[in-house]
Design a protein around this nucleic acid. Structure first.
Lengths: 229, 229
DNA sequence: CTGATATTACGGTCGTGACCGAAGTATTCG
DNA sequence: CGAATACTTCGGTCACGACCGTAATATCAG
């Protein structure tokens, strides 16, 4: 009908191919990945993957940086990441239909990145802990870091004040598609995740969005957030 | 890769067909529409439209209510509506590419519904007016009705207190794809739009999401919000 | 009941796009 | 320089799905 509708169909069609969905999902891990790594994620041949990457880039869903003989691809904008989260959210509250619970998904369900913050059981648990301690107030519509929360993050080694001035949404709930409950997103979620990675509490798994909790992480998360994992 | 990714591709593929995108876009008008009305929106034959409707319903993106010899279709859940808005938002800040500004879109650009609230020039102007008068505070991440705002809505004949207890997000910004600026969404946006329709200030156009500003509306919007339209 | 409208089901055509093999460009390394 | 790696372009095959014509079902009006 209108010009916007056809653009909407174009964008959706880009996401609507399984191989491209795999690529986008892999990039939702938050890291820029090379074409080669995305070949593994896509599950099709390098030639085909290359074509898909060209289409996604042409549609401005992903961006490409050439670096030597590698090409690094990433989600183009936070807006695109939010759109993909929105689709995930719809998928999440869809009926369980037939569910063959793959074991591959097991690690994902436990802990994974959601673009740039932590999701899965761990993400939800972290969020719950912050709320229970009065550091965070989350509603359906948004979230807020309390004064005690600001102090906590300071102690934890995160510069929230700097993060507050970024362009992105500062603090918001993000629906977890495995737990079906919200976890912490936005800039706050991102810096929290980054800090956990910096501390080597969490570790990215190769070619996956899944996160591994290190022994140090197990201890730190227990001491700092009271999580028994 | 994972089961969620393939579901994401399935959902996106549903939206990715032009005819189905037209249907969804029409339903984003917020009204339940009959299959016949959606035939016009889709731009394909009744048989084909029927097939599309079945697929969308099967994918839980739309819901169907039989009523006599009509079947009324509507967007299945607010979550689905938010997902579609998310896609629209990405389309909105994409490069203008080639833009053949259709005149059909003109009315849409001026005023239209966005699922259940007002968008377009009018939607943004209303939102700006509420902010300028200190009735509303909108940030990128959320929004809040001030005390003066609550009083204003009370005077305007809207029961905000009742609306506050609904399941839906209460107050939030929604990126306008024509104006490229946020307008008021959430429950507050919905009740505001409903009140304007009840007052006959706005009128839905047949088979379109576009809204017509009535003479009474012109006057009322000027007196109440200081809008010169 | 008959005729009209609304909607879905079936069957067959056709085009688009996903796919891979082979070959081509670019970059690094020895 | 030549070999190896990283990635893309080209060309051709094939299948899925969008489409419509025809026909069936359901509801309503007279």
């Amino acid at each position: 009908m209108t010009t916007a509708d056809v653009r909407m169909a174009e964008v959706a069609a880009l996401i609507g191919d399984p191989a491209r969905a795999n690529i986008l999902s892999a990039l939702m891990g938050g890291q820029a990945l090379t074409a080669g790594e995305l070949v593994r994620a896509a599950g099709v041949s390098p030639q085909t993957t290359s074509g898909h990457l060209a289409k996604l880039a042409d549609g401005r869903l992903i961006a490409c940086i050439k670096q030597g003989r590698h090409r690094y691809y990433r989600i183009a904008t936070p807006r695109v990441a939010e759109m993909l989260e929105g689709i995930m959210a719809v998928v999440a509250d869809a009926p369980p239909r037939h569910r063959p619970p793959s074991k591959l998904d097991e690690a994902m369900r436990n802990a994974r990145t959601c673009y740039d913050h932590v999701a899965g059981k761990l993400g939800v648990a972290l969020t719950d802990a912050l709320c229970a301690r009065g550091h965070l107030v989350l509603t359906r519509e948004g979230g807020e870091i309390t004064d005690s929360g600001a102090a906590f993050f300071e102690r934890f080694g995160v510069d929230l004040a700097a993060a507050r001035h970024r362009r992105r949404i500062f603090c918001r709930p993000c629906l977890d598609w495995t737990e079906r409950r919200p976890h912490l997103g936005g800039t706050v979620g991102a810096v929290l995740a980054q800090r956990c990675l910096d501390l080597k509490w969490l570790q990215r798994m190769r070619d996956s969005r899944a996160l591994l909790i290190t022994p140090a992480g197990r201890q730190g998360l227990s001491e700092t957030f009271g999580l028994s994992l």
